[in-house]
Write a protein that binds this DNA or RNA. Structure first.
Length: 221
DNA sequence: GCATGATCATTC
DNA sequence: GAATGATCATGC
């Protein structure tokens, strides 16, 4: 168990020291085993970085480094630095959404400050040989915030209107809503078409690759 | 089931 | 090939 970093600079120093290491090298220094693929341990990379940087483990809500207001996100990239996967943000509330506004939403809070850690995510390379890239701090603001706010409001409006079953992953230019659960049998409450409570699969907000690519491009170009 | 960490794999 | 919808591990 590491002490969590007490300042942003300390967190950045720790993260920068990991750049260039392979996941296998970092796992060895943390004394944990590396899976041969991520078919089963899909969140392994993120949990390894949490461990290495001293984030609080477990399933607690809100940012990984709550004391300094920073969220940690690993992001798999290809050789050109393009994201290979969308980025999960948080669960979407599907009931009692009337009083929720963008400024106080879970999405806005989660993405206020993010430490992005790019990692080589090519599937033709074993996880142990994938290299950690240069980490950097990013804040959600300006035009990027306006884009996400627009998508969030469109999707939340549909949820509030009882149209959750119409919200496919095709909605949202930069942020989409998709199922988020252990399997298809998991159900949760949502608002139905006539305002009644219905059961549906839990949903989560995900950042599209175009959005995260812009974040990476802004930093590395 | 909720919430954390995400990637898988079927479908288009 | 890429995106959508589905799924895996873990700790309450």
């Amino acid at each position: 168990m590491k002490a969590s970093p007490s300042t942003i600079d300390e967190l950045l120093d720790r993260a920068e020291a990991l750049a260039g290491l392979t996941l296998g090298e970092l796992a060895q220094s943390e004394n944990i085993r590396v899976p041969n693929d991520f078919k089963r341990e899909k969140g392994w990379s993120g949990q390894l970085l949490e461990l290495a940087l001293g984030a609080e483990a477990g399933s607690k809500a809100q940012q990984d480094f709550a004391n300094i207001g920073v969220e940690l996100k690993t992001i798999p990239i290809d050789v050109n630095g393009y994201p290979l996967e969308t980025t999960y943000v948080c669960y979407a509330h599907l009931v009692d959404v009337a009083g929720i506004h963008w400024a106080t939403s879970s999405v806005r809070n989660k993405l206020n400050k993010v430490l992005w850690v790019p990692i080589d995510g090519r599937r033709d390379i074993p996880p142990s040989e994938r290299t950690i890239g240069t980490p950097f701090l990013w804040s959600l603001q300006g035009q990027q915030e306006a884009y996400l706010r627009q998508d969030w409001e469109e999707i939340m409006d549909m949820i509030a209107m009882g149209d959750i079953e119409k919200v496919t992953a095709r909605y949202g230019e930069y942020m989409q809503l998709r199922p988020k659960a252990a399997n298809g049998s998991v159900l949760t409450d949502a608002i139905g078409k006539n305002g009644q409570i219905i059961q549906t699969r839990p949903r989560g907000f995900y950042l599209r690759k175009e959005f995260t690519h812009k974040i990476l491009d802004d930093y590395f170009s």
